[in-house]
Design a protein around this nucleic acid. Sequence first.
DNA 1: CATCAATCTGAACGCCGTTAAGATCGAGGC
DNA 2: GCCTCGATCTTAACGGCGTTCAGATTGATG
Lengths: 218, 218
Amino acid sequence: MADRPYHHGELRTALLDTAEALIRERGVDGWSLREVSVRVGVSPSAAYHHFASRDALVQALSRRVLARLGERLGDEVERAGGDGVEGVVAFGRGYVRWALEDPAVARHWLAYNAGGGDRTAPHPHRVLAAALDRLVETGGLPAEARPGADFVVWAAVHGLAALLVDGLVHLDTPEAVYAQAERVVRATLIGLSRQAPPPQGWPTPRSAYTERAVDPRR
Amino acid sequence: MADRPYHHGELRTALLDTAEALIRERGVDGWSLREVSVRVGVSPSAAYHHFASRDALVQALSRRVLARLGERLGDEVERAGGDGVEGVVAFGRGYVRWALEDPAVARHWLAYNAGGGDRTAPHPHRVLAAALDRLVETGGLPAEARPGADFVVWAAVHGLAALLVDGLVHLDTPEAVYAQAERVVRATLIGLSRQAPPPQGWPTPRSAYTERAVDPRR
DNA sequence: CATCAATCTGAACGCCGTTAAGATCGAGGC
DNA sequence: GCCTCGATCTTAACGGCGTTCAGATTGATG
């Protein structure tokens, strides 16, 4: 307030960082715009030069979290080889591990997720779709089973993560959680391979990750 | 305020009903305790004789929603025959239909779900577990695959419902949504049947639905 | 009919998100 | 080197929120 320069310089990022830290400390709703401002050392109204509202900050944070998750999942799929079943398994394990390691922030994303993500990072759904495409190329999944398969696997993995983060399902050790994630992914893939493929004209789901302009203030 | 009797009589239920109606009208967070009180025709502090806090009302509503879902799913599984794969498919379709037909309330439950449910109604997880048990009895699922299978199916169905409710996945018609739910359930069941069963001592997940005393004020 | 606990009211507290008017600063043109 | 101008931040205020507390009203008990 007194020792700080009048212009902060990185206020937008500082607000996001501080909000995220508070979420980690006290849970999804354990913070206010005013408290974030105080902690950053700035008046409550300063935030309104960078975010149109508190909700806009929440959305921006959600996008940032999503972008980091996408990046991380891309790396993990890559590191697992990426071309076979192991790549998809790595996706599932990474998704769930992320929810386990940073539960408050993950819960924030689950509750206030923003449809579109940061366009500089791949959306988790894209990472999964790419992994499944390569699985088809390497013969690990019949091509007829591919359409819409991403949504089946995503649903299973997302559901496990949500149940864990919300405390509806409990496992004692992280290893048990990863094992469960692996079982979910492998079962899903086997089922998709053996299942009668969807008929022609089957309505394919669409992801909310559509390219669109994003007002940085929103 | 003037024409109403001093004692409401059914205030607790009226508050829950009105909050639910407001959620349906304006979304998960589009209401306040004060507004609910005004609509019921009661002063804001009256609610505190029935709920310890606003959050307690939220939790109570969440439990009520959960109980209704469990009851409904039980009926639908029953109506589908219940002993074979069709019973589990009916569970998945019902779960997703519920999310589709009452999205705001479903979103409320997803965001503020209470671990334990009303003990007079079966928890959805119990309904699913029972359906899977009968599936094993009728030979539709190998007994070795049964341990933990409920959590695999639940994760897949829950995930699809969550993705739909949050708008992360879109399908144009309700029929397409049900078809997707069916595909998810059938693929999961096939995968569980064909997959190498989990080894002895495999750590089984636990549901948060443990019988425990619930303070009606909380 | 008196008592008493349960229920509800009215007023107040501090915190919240948000807005408006003005102070402070840094950068680009003279 | 100064001046302007737009961006950034402050101070002050508004109404609404959840919550508390002292007191009014009521139906049930005996």
